[in-house]
C-alpha cells in the first residue's frame, strides 16, 4: 500500500494542499480531492483534451500529468477562468451554438483562453491547430471556431 503524499500548488489563485498517491494524475486529484469537477474525464490517455487545464499558463492534459509534479506550480481550471477574456469566449460559444452535449466545452474554453492570452488575433488556421487536441463529437468545430473569430473581431473593434 502506498502512502499518500502532500502536494501544495496554487489552484485558481489559491494555495491548496492535497494528498495524492503514487503517480495519481492531476485530473483525479482535481476532481476527487479538490472537488473541481469541471475538468472532465474523457480518454485518460491524453488524446481527447476534455481535461485541459493551464499549468503555469500552458495547456496540458491533466489526465496524464503526474499530480506530484504540480508541486509549487500554478494551475488554472475552468472554475477559475472568470476573467473578461474567458467570459467573452464562453459567451461567444453560447451565441454561436458551439455547445451541444457540453462534455468537451470546459477543456475547449481552457485551451482557447490559453491561446487568446498568448496570441492577440489568431487566424482560423491557428485556431484549428490549437484545437486539434480537443475532441468534440457533436459540433463539427465550425461553430467553436466562429466563436473565437467573433471574440477576435470584438477585441479588434474595441481597440
Amino acid at each position: 500500500m502506498q502512502t499518500p503524499h502532500p502536494v501544495t500548488a496554487t489552484i485558481n489563485g489559491r494555495e491548496e494542499t492535497f494528498e495524492v498517491i503514487g503517480l495519481e494524475s492531476l485530473m483525479d486529484a482535481l476532481r476527487n480531492r479538490l472537488h473541481l469537477s469541471g475538468t472532465k474525464e474523457g480518454c485518460r490517455e491524453g488524446e481527447c483534451g476534455a481535461c485541459t487545464v493551464l499549468l503555469d499558463g500552458k495547456p496540458i492534459n491533466a489526465c496524464i500529468f503526474i499530480a506530484r509534479a504540480a508541486e509549487g506550480r500554478e494551475i488554472e481550471t475552468i472554475e477559475g477562468l472568470q476573467d473578461d477574456l474567458s467570459s467573452r469566449i464562453k459567451q461567444a460559444i453560447v451565441e454561436t451554438s458551439g455547445v451541444q452535449c457540453g462534455y468537451c466545452t470546459p477543456g475547449i474554453v481552457v485551451m482557447l483562453s490559453g491561446l487568446l492570452r498568448r496570441v492577440e488575433a489568431p487566424n482560423e488556421a491557428l485556431i484549428r491547430e490549437a484545437l486539434s487536441g480537443n475532441i468534440c463529437r457533436c459540433t463539427g468545430y465550425a461553430q467553436i471556431v466562429d466563436a473565437v473569430l467573433d471574440v477576435v473581431e470584438q477585441k479588434a473593434a474595441a481597440s
Binding site: 491524453g46 483534451g49 485541459t52 499549468l55 500552458k58 495547456p59 496540458i60 492534459n61 500529468f65 485551451m111 491547430e129 490549437a130 486539434s132 487536441g133 480537443n134
Partner: peptide, 12 residues
Amino acid sequence: AGKCGGWQTQSI
C-alpha cells in the same frame, strides 16, 4: 514537433 500530439502534449 508541431505534429506530435496536441498542444497539451507538446507543452510538456
